[in-house]
């Protein structure tokens, strides 16, 4: 039945109110006039990269003992490029670029392969993506994590097994994933309510595309340090005004003294 003018106005107002009521959630802007910018930068370990310690493999040795399993908590290249630094938007209610949403995969996959988690660091837009874990090893694996205020997971992954998990809440910092069978295995996943999370690549670089123009607060985090609490970034946080196009954060050099031994 067609709506009367009065009904139309009332329902539209109600819908607008409902949207405003949940205004703290990210707003997906589809208007053509919105402008977007990219943030790029590079994290560098400002010293001689440490040798990666060989981890003690004392479980399922027949299978896992054949791999050279090493500590992944500090991955720095020869030129200092520092991998696995999480950098993400801290501002609430940030506008989201439609392109980012369109390109978002429906799920994020964590593989148990060669008796380690792969990849070591993951990001997930929990409103849009589900977390899929799979076991490619010939021994059973376990995926255990406890996000703050969210349902804990402690799933068995038999050989060739898989499992799916749905986060329901954003996290302030990445969540530790471990395997209760193999104590050396670890990974991190950061569930956020927007797609603006990047993890630095092997050369230390990162690119966060499609940020809304204007002031945005960011958070940086590394598993050895926690929040990258450097003088310029108290508690690992900093604010930057994003302009259309590329915004270069430059090279962020991190002194070795910031990285305590685990």
């Amino acid at each position: 039945m067609p709506l009367t003018r009065r009904q139309f106005v009332l329902r539209t107002a109600a819908a607008t109110g409902a949207v405003a009521a949940v205004g703290r959630f990210p707003t997906i802007i589809r208007a053509a006039e919105a402008q977007w910018g990219d943030l790029v930068g590079r994290f560098v370990y400002d010293g001689k990269p440490p040798q990666r310690k060989k981890l003690k493999v004392d479980k399922d040795v027949d299978c896992c003992g054949q791999f050279d399993i090493r500590d992944e908590s500090l991955l720095a290249g020869e030129d200092g490029g520092l991998a696995n630094v999480f950098i993400y938007v801290r501002s609430r209610g940030i506008a989201i670029c439609p392109e980012r949403e369109e390109k978002t995969e429906p799920r994020v996959t964590l593989d148990n392969r060669d008796c380690i988690f792969s990849p070591h660091c993951l990001k997930i837009w929990y409103n849009k993506q589900e977390f899929y874990t799979v076991n490619s090893d010939p021994v059973a694996q376990n995926v255990a994590f406890e996000p703050v205020g969210d349902t804990p997971c402690n799933a068995v992954l038999p050989v060739k097994g898989d499992a799916t998990y749905k986060f329901t809440r954003r996290q302030l910092t990445p969540v530790l994933i471990k395997c209760n069978y193999h104590p050396w295995e670890s990974a991190y996943i950061l569930p956020r309510d927007n797609p603006y999370t990047e993890i630095s690549r092997a050369d230390g670089t990162f690119q966060m595309a499609g940020l809304p123009v204007g002031p945005v607060e960011f958070q940086a985090w590394h598993e050895r340090i926690g929040p990258l609490d450097i003088p310029a970034w108290p508690k690992g946080r900093f604010e930057m005004t994003i302009k259309p196009g590329v915004n270069d954060l430059g090279t962020i050099r991190l002194a070795p003294s910031l990285f305590p031994e685990p």
């Binding site: 004392d58 479980k59 050989v159 209760n180």
Partner: peptide, 23 residues
């Protein structure tokens, strides 16, 4: 020992064998 109890538990004297105490 591959997936279930004996992967971590001893059952009498039968068990996962020498390994990290923490698991």
């Amino acid at each position: 020992r591959t997936t279930y109890c004996a992967k971590c538990h001893l059952v009498g004297t039968y068990g996962p064998g020498g390994q990290s105490r923490s698991v």
